[in-house]
Amino acid sequence: MDINLQVIIKLLAALGLIIALLIANSLVMVWLERKVAGFIQRRPGPYEVGPYGLLQTLVDAVKLLGKQMVVPANCDHVLFFLGPVLAMFPMFLVFLVIPFGPVLTGLEDDLGVLLIMAFVGFEGLAVLVGGWASNNKYGLIGAARAVSQAVAYEIPLILAVLAVAFQCGTLNLTLITEAQGNWPWQWHLVRQPLAFLIFLICMFGETNRAPFDLPEGESELTGGYHTEYSGMGFALYFMAEYTSMLLVSFLAAVFFLGGSGGPLWPGIWWTFIKAGLLMTLMIWVRWTYPRVRFDQLLNINWKWLLPLGLLNLWLTALVMKCF
């Protein structure tokens, strides 16, 4: 690759914008989560700070910044601090390859899908490192759950994505967007409904969101893998969760919902609208469904999603070969 000023400026600008996006996302999403939760549970949610409590998260962020980070005795100090950092740092990289708009891609890469899948794997490792290093039984159990869940749900997720990539004949996210048209019936949602369903379920498993939030199930594990984390350590894990929510929502929008294409004025706003709606759906599901049991969680994955994913891939191959 030729390194010129254009490439350098583009990468730096993309990184800056992504960092801004991720911070803004966490601020807005935490507010939205609490507001939607309040709406569903028939209570007002935050409303004191700012109009409709909009500035509540900002104040919370200042509080978290000012809080003392308590380091438990007999924990592994290096790994204890490495955990939250490891949870956040790959996130800046994976957003580089997402095509937000027709020309708004930080780094156009022919292996974009693979890059995302490769760096998302760090998430499980970060949870493990943090949970193990805090020298707490709840943390350890949470981490153990997180890893068996992450490893399990990654496979059907990849199978679903693979079916779409297979149909488009590319792993380049921009080309996958372009393969879909502006109208909803041209999107992969219609051509690959089973893959979309699998992806949708795996979204909750991959992001450790309710009803699949067993790694941090507060009624049984106090806080799961982040039991011992306070202040910024907790904030980073929290931010990583909302960031991975944003990531899977953008991925679903790009893979199955036409990305930046829309019936009216196709452009970058469509990607954001679709991702935003998907995130709202995730919040809605969280406050609607009860948490599943751990064996149920794994049974859904290994006995249903994995065979269905394989079947879908096989059918896609068959259709591609015959027609």
Partner: peptide
């Protein structure tokens, strides 16, 4: 990317 996906994302996590 395969190195990261398989060795870091899967094998190291299982060893862990």
């Amino acid at each position: 990317f395969m190195q990261l996906l398989i060795y870091v994302g899967a094998i190291c996590v299982l060893v862990f």
